[in-house]
Design a protein around this nucleic acid. Structure first.
Lengths: 296, 296
DNA sequence: AGATTCTGATAAAATTTTTCTATGGATATT
DNA sequence: AATATCCATAGAAAAATTTTATCAGAATCT
């Protein structure tokens, strides 16, 4: 059954005439006749008694009229709903991010996003870049923020924010610029094996040509905050994202030591699946991030 | 939009596959593709993300799924309703009848009809045959019972019951068979001018070759009951339908005088419009009357 | 009563939509 | 790397919708 037929029926019922319905719907009268006939056959009942000049709807027509109207209304409503979720973003935003973006970058951005779209609720899952990408591929998550590019064919990466890894030390250390090898001189605080940050750290040390085995590791901790506390208390130095020590730097609780002629820069990316359609809320958030990119 | 497309969509959504939907609906996979494409265009949104081997429904698809199911359910329900009013007769039966059938024949029949179909409520409008036919032609009434055929082209008449008009007299009169002219001897009670029964009476007297002016009219009354009372009290004779004096004859309150070699027979008909469709309740009642025809 | 003007029905042609076959490219599985 | 399975696309075939043209019946108006 076609909705079109129901519309035709409704017009005939209202106009009490096949030909008037034809005019109303910009169709010809035989077309109307045909549609009513089809409906009558499909529903196995007579809808109009043709008395020559006038037609009279049957009881069946009265029932059909009520229901047909409801069905068409429901359909219009549905179309409306589908349009509205495009124009009035609300709902749940479930995103994943690796630890630095998830902990130090997104919360601030999300706070200002919530000011614009208060009805949108947001959930951030923090894990490492690898898990974030995996959950996007598996379809669990539609949008992530990561610091590494993986599975390049299936994931679209939009550069979104720069990060710099710096050597963070207690204020007690006087030097501000050192050679890479000098790192080995200082007591070093590290993250637990397997953590994303640990891998990242090792990658950079290797890149500077340092043998990780030769590090003077005094402590292994399992969170960035714990590492920061250890540094504040003069336990040693570590390598951290500049984003993670914004406050501590401002209040001069710790200091940065830079390596001569060397910067540990990296970029965070917004990661999405190349083939998935983002619901409107996600698109909005995506555009928002794009606009705010590189602003911190 | 075709309901068919919604069914296709629902199948794809449930099966999470175009080709499985094709199998389920006995269509080919390209047909399914085409239908989903059409829907997507009509609703102006993507319904499934095609990730190669698997498809994932979008948010829009989730919404459409809910609504499409409801719409289809509503449609099935509607078809059901239209079938049910065929199988479970209930509702209102509005019929018209001329005075004798309406007063003395139908009540009894309706009583036994109600025993079979208790949910059907019945209204009888009693008027003269002319008005009954007019109200059928005007569409006000779908079924009537009358004693005369009028407007034969538009009305279908089904013979339904015989009537005999008899001369009714007080028990005090001894004769039981008289010649037509002898009617003039007796004091005569008549109905008011314009009433159907009066016209009928005049018609029969004229047919017997009697001059109505010569009747010895002692009283003009406006209901059959009043006439009967008058006869019981010995005021005079009258001509009445045999149906209207069934009880009085049984208890011998009055007597019948017949005319030698002459019978005032007529037939009652069930009258319906040739072009109107009878709702199922009416059809049932019509069949019921047909079955009970000539049974009283 | 007869002409006119409504009404809807019908047949045949034109058009549009639906469906199929065949094929291709992509992804997942072994 | 080979195979199987998935969806998309193009073109042909089938089915449906719609139109034009015409008819017959009913109401209306001389």
């Amino acid at each position: 059954m076609d909705i079109h037929q129901l519309r035709v029926f409704i017009s005939v019922f209202k106009n009490k005439s096949f030909s008037k319905a034809a005019k109303e719907l910009f169709l010809t009268q035989p077309t109307i006749s045909e549609h009513i006939k089809t409906l009558e056959e499909e529903l196995n009942c007579i809808l109009f008694d043709r008395l020559g000049k006038i037609i009279i709807p049957t009881k069946e027509a009265e029932i059909l009229y009520q229901n047909a109207q409801e069905i068409i209304e429901k359909l219009e409503e549905l179309k409306d709903t589908l349009q509205k979720i495009k124009s009035k973003p609300s709902g749940n935003l479930h995103i994943a991010a690796s630890s630095i973006p998830g902990t130090y970058i997104l919360p601030k951005l999300i706070s200002s996003f919530k000011n614009i779209y208060p009805e949108i609720s947001i959930q951030i899952d923090i894990s490492d870049s690898n898990s974030v990408i995996e959950s996007i591929i598996s379809g669990e998550i539609l949008l992530g923020v990561v610091g590494t590019k993986l599975h390049k064919s299936k994931i679209e990466y939009l550069p979104f924010m720069d990060d710099e890894l710096v050597i963070v030390s207690p204020n007690s250390i006087e030097e501000s610029y050192i050679e890479p090898e000098e790192i080995l001189k200082y007591p070093f605080i590290t993250r637990e094996e397997g953590s994303g940050t640990r891998k990242e750290m090792e990658k950079w040390l290797r890149q500077m040509g340092l043998d990780i085995q030769k590090l003077n590791i005094v402590c292994t901790l399992s969170s960035t905050d714990a590492v920061k506390e250890a540094i504040k208390n003069g336990l040693g130095i570590s390598i951290l994202s500049i984003h993670s020590i914004r406050d501590e730097l401002e209040y001069k609780k710790i200091k940065i030591i830079r390596i001569k002629n060397y910067r540990m820069n990296r970029t965070f990316y917004i990661a999405t699946h190349t083939m998935r359609t983002l619901p409107y809320v996600y698109k909005i958030f995506y555009e928002f991030l794009k606009e705010k990119a590189f602003s911190l």
